[in-house]
Protein backbone atom coordinates (compact mmCIF):
# COMPACT_ATOMS: atom_id res chain seq x y z
CA UNK A 1 0.00 0.00 0.00
CA UNK A 2 2.62 2.46 1.17
CA UNK A 3 4.93 1.37 -1.63
CA UNK A 4 2.27 2.14 -4.15
CA UNK A 5 1.66 5.60 -2.74
CA UNK A 6 5.37 6.36 -2.82
CA UNK A 7 5.71 4.98 -6.36
CA UNK A 8 2.79 7.08 -7.53
CA UNK A 9 4.30 10.19 -5.98
CA UNK A 10 7.60 9.66 -7.82
CA UNK A 11 5.80 8.96 -11.05
CA UNK A 12 4.00 12.30 -10.59
CA UNK A 13 7.34 13.92 -9.85
CA UNK A 14 8.62 12.66 -13.20
CA UNK A 15 5.55 13.82 -15.07
CA UNK A 16 5.56 17.31 -13.51
CA UNK A 17 9.32 18.02 -13.22
CA UNK A 18 11.11 15.52 -15.47
CA UNK A 19 13.10 14.07 -12.52
CA UNK A 20 12.94 10.44 -13.54
CA UNK A 21 13.68 8.15 -10.57
CA UNK A 22 12.75 4.82 -12.12
CA UNK A 23 14.65 3.13 -9.31
CA UNK A 24 11.84 4.20 -6.96
CA UNK A 25 8.65 3.78 -8.93
CA UNK A 26 9.64 1.01 -11.34
CA UNK A 27 9.82 -2.39 -9.66
CA UNK A 28 12.28 -3.83 -12.18
CA UNK A 29 14.73 -0.91 -11.96
CA UNK A 30 14.38 -0.82 -8.19
CA UNK A 31 15.26 -4.47 -7.97
CA UNK A 32 18.24 -3.99 -10.31
CA UNK A 33 19.50 -1.04 -8.34
CA UNK A 34 19.14 -2.73 -4.95
CA UNK A 35 20.95 -5.83 -6.16
CA UNK A 36 23.74 -3.57 -7.46
CA UNK A 37 23.92 -1.86 -4.08
CA UNK A 38 24.01 -5.27 -2.43
CA UNK A 39 26.91 -6.31 -4.69
CA UNK A 40 28.84 -3.13 -3.82
CA UNK A 41 28.38 -3.77 -0.10
CA UNK A 42 29.34 -7.42 -0.54
CA UNK A 43 32.50 -6.51 -2.50
CA UNK A 44 33.44 -3.84 0.03
CA UNK A 45 32.93 -5.98 3.14
CA UNK A 46 34.72 -9.04 1.76
CA UNK A 47 37.62 -7.02 0.32
CA UNK A 48 37.99 -4.97 3.52
CA UNK A 49 38.25 -8.11 5.63
CA UNK A 50 40.66 -9.89 3.27
CA UNK A 51 42.80 -6.78 2.78
CA UNK A 52 43.12 -6.27 6.55
CA UNK A 53 44.21 -9.90 6.88
CA UNK A 54 46.72 -9.41 4.06
CA UNK A 55 48.03 -6.29 5.82
CA UNK A 56 48.43 -8.04 9.17
CA UNK A 57 50.08 -11.15 7.74
CA UNK A 58 52.21 -9.20 5.25
CA UNK A 59 53.54 -6.84 7.89
CA UNK A 60 54.46 -9.84 10.02
CA UNK A 61 56.22 -11.53 7.11
CA UNK A 62 58.13 -8.30 6.47
CA UNK A 63 59.85 -8.88 9.81
CA UNK A 64 60.78 -12.44 8.91
CA UNK A 65 64.36 -13.53 9.52
CA UNK A 66 64.30 -15.09 6.03
CA UNK A 67 65.47 -12.73 3.27
CA UNK A 68 63.38 -14.54 0.64
CA UNK A 69 60.16 -13.95 2.56
CA UNK A 70 60.92 -10.28 3.12
CA UNK A 71 61.81 -9.89 -0.55
CA UNK A 72 58.56 -11.50 -1.69
CA UNK A 73 56.44 -9.26 0.50
CA UNK A 74 58.28 -6.14 -0.61
CA UNK A 75 57.91 -7.16 -4.24
CA UNK A 76 54.20 -7.70 -3.78
CA UNK A 77 53.78 -4.30 -2.14
CA UNK A 78 55.74 -2.48 -4.86
CA UNK A 79 53.86 -4.11 -7.74
CA UNK A 80 50.41 -3.51 -6.33
CA UNK A 81 51.14 -0.04 -5.05
CA UNK A 82 52.81 1.21 -8.21
CA UNK A 83 50.33 0.00 -10.81
CA UNK A 84 46.81 1.30 -11.55
CA UNK A 85 44.06 -0.78 -9.94
CA UNK A 86 42.14 -0.96 -13.24
CA UNK A 87 45.18 -2.49 -14.93
CA UNK A 88 45.39 -4.97 -12.05
CA UNK A 89 41.76 -5.98 -12.51
CA UNK A 90 42.28 -6.46 -16.26
CA UNK A 91 45.46 -8.39 -15.57
CA UNK A 92 43.63 -10.83 -13.33
CA UNK A 93 40.44 -11.20 -15.32
CA UNK A 94 41.70 -11.07 -18.91
CA UNK A 95 45.32 -12.07 -18.32
CA UNK A 96 45.44 -14.65 -15.58
CA UNK A 97 41.85 -15.73 -16.16
CA UNK A 98 42.68 -16.72 -19.74
CA UNK A 99 45.83 -18.64 -18.90
CA UNK A 100 44.40 -20.66 -16.03
CA UNK A 101 42.84 -24.00 -16.98
CA UNK A 102 39.07 -24.26 -17.04
CA UNK A 103 37.15 -26.64 -14.83
CA UNK A 104 33.96 -28.57 -15.39
CA UNK A 105 30.90 -27.34 -13.54
CA UNK A 106 27.96 -29.44 -12.33
CA UNK A 107 26.45 -29.55 -15.83
CA UNK A 108 29.68 -30.66 -17.42
CA UNK A 109 30.36 -27.19 -18.89
CA UNK A 110 33.94 -25.92 -19.13
CA UNK A 111 33.93 -22.74 -17.05
CA UNK A 112 36.70 -20.47 -15.73
CA UNK A 113 38.06 -21.29 -12.28
CA UNK A 114 36.96 -17.93 -10.90
CA UNK A 115 33.96 -15.81 -11.86
CA UNK A 116 34.30 -12.10 -12.60
CA UNK A 117 33.03 -11.32 -9.10
CA UNK A 118 35.68 -13.56 -7.57
CA UNK A 119 38.42 -12.01 -9.71
CA UNK A 120 37.27 -8.58 -8.59
CA UNK A 121 37.53 -9.69 -4.96
CA UNK A 122 41.01 -11.14 -5.50
CA UNK A 123 42.22 -8.09 -7.34
CA UNK A 124 40.76 -5.41 -5.08
CA UNK A 125 41.83 -7.25 -1.90
CA UNK A 126 45.42 -7.51 -3.10
CA UNK A 127 45.40 -3.87 -4.18
CA UNK A 128 44.16 -2.59 -0.82
CA UNK A 129 46.16 -5.28 1.01
CA UNK A 130 49.44 -3.95 -0.39
CA UNK A 131 48.68 -0.55 1.09
CA UNK A 132 47.57 -2.17 4.33
CA UNK A 133 50.94 -3.93 4.64
CA UNK A 134 52.63 -0.55 4.55
CA UNK A 135 50.09 0.92 6.96
CA UNK A 136 50.52 -1.88 9.48
CA UNK A 137 54.26 -1.63 9.16
CA UNK A 138 54.19 2.05 10.04
CA UNK A 139 52.17 1.08 13.13
CA UNK A 140 54.63 -1.66 14.06
CA UNK A 141 57.56 0.71 13.73
CA UNK A 142 55.93 3.08 16.21
CA UNK A 143 55.81 0.41 18.95
CA UNK A 144 58.90 0.82 21.15
CA UNK A 145 61.52 -1.89 20.69
CA UNK A 146 61.62 -2.32 24.47
CA UNK A 147 57.98 -3.45 24.54
CA UNK A 148 58.91 -6.31 22.23
CA UNK A 149 61.88 -7.16 24.44
CA UNK A 150 59.67 -7.33 27.50
CA UNK A 151 57.48 -9.88 25.73
CA UNK A 152 60.51 -11.87 24.56
CA UNK A 153 61.87 -11.90 28.10
CA UNK A 154 58.57 -13.47 29.19
CA UNK A 155 59.13 -16.33 26.76
CA UNK A 156 56.86 -15.25 23.91
CA UNK A 157 57.79 -16.60 20.48
CA UNK A 158 58.04 -14.26 17.49
CA UNK A 159 54.47 -15.07 16.51
CA UNK A 160 53.29 -14.73 20.12
CA UNK A 161 54.88 -11.31 20.45
CA UNK A 162 53.21 -10.24 17.21
CA UNK A 163 49.77 -11.58 18.04
CA UNK A 164 49.47 -10.54 21.64
CA UNK A 165 51.56 -7.38 21.84
CA UNK A 166 52.73 -5.84 18.57
CA UNK A 167 49.64 -6.20 16.41
CA UNK A 168 47.13 -4.89 18.99
CA UNK A 169 49.33 -1.85 19.60
CA UNK A 170 50.21 -1.26 15.94
CA UNK A 171 46.54 -1.50 14.97
CA UNK A 172 45.64 1.28 17.37
CA UNK A 173 48.41 3.47 16.05
CA UNK A 174 47.60 2.94 12.37
CA UNK A 175 43.79 3.05 12.51
CA UNK A 176 43.47 6.56 11.00
CA UNK A 177 45.62 5.57 8.02
CA UNK A 178 43.78 2.26 7.70
CA UNK A 179 40.54 4.18 7.77
CA UNK A 180 41.62 6.23 4.73
CA UNK A 181 42.69 3.22 2.77
CA UNK A 182 39.46 1.35 3.40
CA UNK A 183 37.43 4.37 2.26
CA UNK A 184 39.51 4.30 -0.90
CA UNK A 185 38.89 0.60 -1.30
CA UNK A 186 35.14 1.09 -1.01
CA UNK A 187 35.24 3.68 -3.80
CA UNK A 188 37.56 1.55 -5.92
CA UNK A 189 34.98 -1.26 -6.01
CA UNK A 190 33.40 0.74 -8.89
CA UNK A 191 36.29 -0.44 -11.08
CA UNK A 192 34.72 -3.91 -11.05
CA UNK A 193 32.36 -2.28 -13.54
CA UNK A 194 35.07 -2.84 -16.13
CA UNK A 195 34.74 -6.62 -15.93
CA UNK A 196 30.93 -6.53 -15.83
CA UNK A 197 30.48 -7.13 -12.13
CA UNK A 198 26.91 -5.97 -11.51
CA UNK A 199 27.70 -3.51 -8.75
CA UNK A 200 26.06 -0.12 -8.21
CA UNK A 201 27.79 1.76 -11.03
CA UNK A 202 27.23 -1.08 -13.50
CA UNK A 203 23.52 -1.43 -12.84
CA UNK A 204 23.13 2.35 -12.83
CA UNK A 205 24.60 2.43 -16.32
CA UNK A 206 22.02 -0.18 -17.41
CA UNK A 207 19.26 1.83 -15.82
CA UNK A 208 20.23 5.15 -17.38
CA UNK A 209 20.68 3.51 -20.78
CA UNK A 210 17.17 2.08 -20.60
CA UNK A 211 15.49 5.10 -19.03
CA UNK A 212 17.51 7.96 -20.51
CA UNK A 213 17.93 9.57 -17.08
CA UNK A 214 21.70 10.03 -16.95
CA UNK A 215 21.88 13.24 -14.86
CA UNK A 216 19.46 11.92 -12.27
CA UNK A 217 21.32 8.62 -11.90
CA UNK A 218 24.62 10.50 -11.59
CA UNK A 219 23.26 12.41 -8.63
CA UNK A 220 21.87 9.22 -7.14
CA UNK A 221 25.33 7.65 -7.46
CA UNK A 222 27.02 10.57 -5.72
CA UNK A 223 24.53 10.42 -2.88
CA UNK A 224 24.74 6.64 -2.54
CA UNK A 225 28.55 6.61 -2.33
CA UNK A 226 28.58 9.56 0.05
CA UNK A 227 26.27 7.61 2.35
CA UNK A 228 28.18 4.33 2.00
CA UNK A 229 31.48 5.98 2.85
CA UNK A 230 29.77 7.84 5.69
CA UNK A 231 28.60 4.56 7.16
CA UNK A 232 32.06 3.03 6.82
CA UNK A 233 33.70 6.01 8.50
CA UNK A 234 31.13 5.86 11.28
CA UNK A 235 31.89 2.17 11.88
CA UNK A 236 35.64 2.83 11.84
CA UNK A 237 35.28 5.59 14.39
CA UNK A 238 33.24 3.35 16.64
CA UNK A 239 35.96 0.74 16.33
CA UNK A 240 38.62 3.33 17.14
CA UNK A 241 36.69 4.32 20.26
CA UNK A 242 36.23 0.72 21.32
CA UNK A 243 39.97 0.10 21.02
CA UNK A 244 41.04 3.27 22.84
CA UNK A 245 43.10 2.56 25.93
CA UNK A 246 42.73 4.71 29.04
CA UNK A 247 45.97 6.57 29.67
CA UNK A 248 47.48 5.75 26.27
CA UNK A 249 47.65 7.70 23.03
CA UNK A 250 44.34 9.32 22.10
CA UNK A 251 42.61 7.44 24.91
CA UNK A 252 44.57 9.49 27.43
CA UNK A 253 42.53 12.63 26.96
CA UNK A 254 42.12 13.11 30.67
Amino acid sequence: MLMETVARWFLDLYETTGINLTIVYDAYDRQRFLSGLGMTIYLAVVCILISIAIGAVGAWAQGSPLRVVRGLVNGFVVIFRNTPPLVQIFFFYFGLGQILPRIEDADGMRVPILTNVQWAIVSLSLFAGAFNVEIFRSGLEAVPRTTTEAAQALGYTRLGVYRHVLLPLALRICLPALNNNLVNLLKTTTLAYAIAVPETLYVSKQIWTDSQNVPVMMIVLLIVYTLLVGILVFIMHRWEKALAIPGYGQGSGR
Binding site: P144, T146, T147, E149, A150, A151, Q152, A153, L154, G155, T157, H164, V165, P168, L169, R172, I245, G247, Y248
Partner: peptide, 21 residues
Amino acid sequence: DKLALRRKVGMVFQQYNLFPH
Protein backbone atom coordinates in the same frame (compact mmCIF):
# COMPACT_ATOMS: atom_id res chain seq x y z
CA ASP B 1 65.36 -23.63 24.02
CA LYS B 2 64.63 -19.98 24.74
CA LEU B 3 61.28 -20.70 26.36
CA ALA B 4 62.86 -23.13 28.82
CA LEU B 5 65.46 -20.50 29.68
CA ARG B 6 63.11 -17.55 29.92
CA ARG B 7 60.59 -19.27 32.15
CA LYS B 8 63.41 -19.63 34.66
CA VAL B 9 64.68 -16.05 34.32
CA GLY B 10 62.43 -13.09 35.07
CA MET B 11 63.45 -9.62 33.96
CA VAL B 12 62.45 -6.11 35.00
CA PHE B 13 63.44 -3.11 32.88
CA GLN B 14 64.26 0.49 33.60
CA GLN B 15 61.28 1.74 31.56
CA TYR B 16 58.82 -0.84 33.03
CA ASN B 17 57.76 -1.88 29.50
CA LEU B 18 54.28 -2.93 30.50
CA PHE B 19 51.85 -3.77 27.72
CA PRO B 20 49.83 -0.55 27.53
CA HIS B 21 46.74 -2.14 25.96
